[in-house]
Amino acid sequence: MIEVSGVTKAYGDKNVVNNISFKVEEGETLVLLGTSGCGKTTTLKMLNSLIEPTNGVVKIDKKDITSEDPTQLRRKIGYVIQDIGLFPHYTVEQNIAVVPRLLKWDKAQIKKRSEELLEVLGLSSSWMKRFPNELSGGQQQRVGIARALIADPPVILMDEPFGALDPITRKQIRDEFKNIEAFISKTIVLVTHDVVEAVELGDKICLLHDGAIVQMGTPKDLIFSPKNDFVKRFFDNQRFMIELMVMTLEDMIPVLESRNDQKPEKLQFTKETSLFNALECVEESVENDIAIEIVNENKKPMISTDREALLRAFYGTKDILSKNRATA
């Protein structure tokens, strides 16, 4: 869907983005991850022609984007900007309706779609008539996201879409967001410097440093087979949590001990559930010693176990993963 080849952006004699190439398949989410100033925003803006690359080609849908009128191009690409950038003189309703109006949708259609979207994003429709300065930072950010999604663009660019939020709200929105249809089906490039966010939302992560790609791959790739010390250290901070997040229950099954002794309570998880989420649920339940049942897509039980066995399996799997990847 998106194909970036050999793209460089120079300001003066400094390459702030240096010869990067990557691909994002349709429906996939790519996270651009890196420390502040490494060139994430610059890279993102080259995808919708807000910045012109000094060198290299960006293709969307196999078409070189420079061959298209940039304003037409941008109307087909959702864009959530880093500073939110809502129009202060427009109400929430008008802010959301910007792109549909550019696309000359009729009023009823705009209204219907806005209402749907607000509901999906957890915004009450009573806010439609409010102005951005009457909303909290987090609420504004949701409006910013709604504005990017409304015209149902196949491609969405998001620059730190949850940046203005406190960690708790951030996690909460992220959870909601992950599950909405729009997010799942779209091709998304998302910028963040938060590793947990990257792991949680990204199908693939592209780790940037000083304008260049250090490593690109699935979260599992980056965590269990870091290309170098930089990559390894980048995830060190919350490594345990991240490892739990990238592993699914299915990954555990080969080494998981089955425990069928009678327990007062039972929790059921699908095999795609991340280890982190499963353990979190267990921690939250009143009873600590609880049976854990893993089911397949047809809700058929695959294996029954408990917390202790799950944790042991985690360490076993981790060893195998690290070894496999190292030899591969």
Partner: peptide, 18 residues
């Protein structure tokens, strides 16, 4: 006018006149 707002407008696909 804040640059972020102009940028948003451009990013939404407004032409210069718009």
């Amino acid at each position: 006018v804040k640059p972020s707002i102009k940028e948003a407008a451009r990013g939404m696909g407004m032409s210069n006149t718009q």
